[in-house]
């Protein structure tokens, strides 16, 4: 196989509150021989909130980020669902609206950049599955996760709206997503079925609507627990923050104790590839990862 090479848009979370996500991403890329060039120039995607305040500004900043992947001539991979949604949405709007693209490019020209639309944008989960391949991944597994029941938590912004997401996620159906389940199986684990796996964790309303957010988080963990999961796995660091850090609030809102260790997608892959807990940053979890 030709060596895979991508431009990595880390997003802010992986550089701040979930350092273990960046660490484990780089660790498994190394193991799998995937080259990741960090886009250090990139700014925050606005996390679906900046656009509520200033939509045009959000477009310009996200387009600038993509420009840097285009300069490298590489596909941009994201490691956060919300970064994926915002970036892919920007790309789609600019690629389908020449007038808007021209307007954005007038601004970008002020800093010597031009958005062309030449780079694809895809989440690392889908790059692994579609470009690296599940079979190739399974062949590299050193420590199969066969003793674990693992609950996949997809996160909204990788699967909905499917019309947009299907441009890069291999046609995943948001009502019956399979990618993360398939990845669990490729790692030798047992994938757990539960109703909340494709539902929202509530992250984006956490400050302004704490009760709603807490109940959604609680429902997700409770669903996984009731399906006998040993732990959860997610491709989204924002979901991770909700599920890993905020189970106390969720328990209170739900009137029931909910708590499960939650791994980032690359941490799970890393365990199967034989990475050490330190290489995967498992010490950074608030809900203790007590099974390794």
């Amino acid at each position: 196989m030709e060596k895979l090479k991508y431009a990595l848009y880390t997003g802010c979370t992986a550089r701040e509150s979930t350092p273990e996500l960046l660490k484990s991403t780089l660790a498994i890329a190394d193991k799998l021989g995937i080259e990741l060039i960090l886009l250090d120039e990139a700014s925050c995607c606005g996390a679906s909130h900046l656009q509520d305040y200033d939509d045009f500004l959000s477009l310009v900043l996200n387009a600038r980020n993509i420009c840097y992947a285009e300069k490298l001539g590489l596909t941009m991979v994201t490691i956060c669902n919300t970064c994926q949604l915002n970036t892919a949405m920007t790309k789609h709007r600019l690629d389908t609206n020449p007038e808007l693209k021209a307007k954005v490019n007038v601004k970008l020209a002020e800093v010597g950049l031009e958005y062309k639309g030449s780079s694809e944008v895809t989440h690392f989960l889908y790059a692994l599955i579609q470009d690296f391949g599940l079979k190739n991944l399974a062949a590299k597994v050193e420590v199969p996760l066969s003793q674990f029941n693992i609950a996949p938590f997809y996160g909204c912004h990788n699967i909905r709206p499917s019309e947009l997401q299907n441009l890069s996620n291999g046609g995943e159906n948001p009502y019956t997503p399979t990618s993360l389940d398939d990845l669990i199986i490729a790692c030798g684990g047992v994938n757990v079925h539960y109703e909340e796996k494709n539902k929202c964790c509530g992250f984006h309303a956490e400050l302004q609507s704490p009760r709603t957010a807490a109940i959604l988080t609680g429902n997700a963990i409770a669903g996984a627990m009731d399906a006998n999961a040993d732990w959860m796995v997610t491709p989204c660091p924002l979901c991770h923050l909700k599920l890993d850090v905020q189970n106390h609030g969720a328990s209170k809102a739900l009137g029931r104790d909910v708590k499960l260790p939650v791994l980032h997608m690359p941490q799970m892959v890393g365990l199967a590839l034989g990475c050490t807990p330190a290489e995967l940053g498992l010490n950074h979890h608030v809900t203790k990862v007590d099974f390794v």
């Binding site: 550089r15 925050c44 900046l50 305040y53």
Partner: peptide, 23 residues
């Protein structure tokens, strides 16, 4: 001027200062 609006506006402030979000 409440938590919801400041949450949206706060992104612009943070990006202005760091490029990234100061969580």
């Amino acid at each position: 001027n409440n938590v919801a609006t400041r949450h949206a506006v706060g992104f612009a402030h943070s990006i202005q200062k760091h490029g990234l979000l100061d969580e």
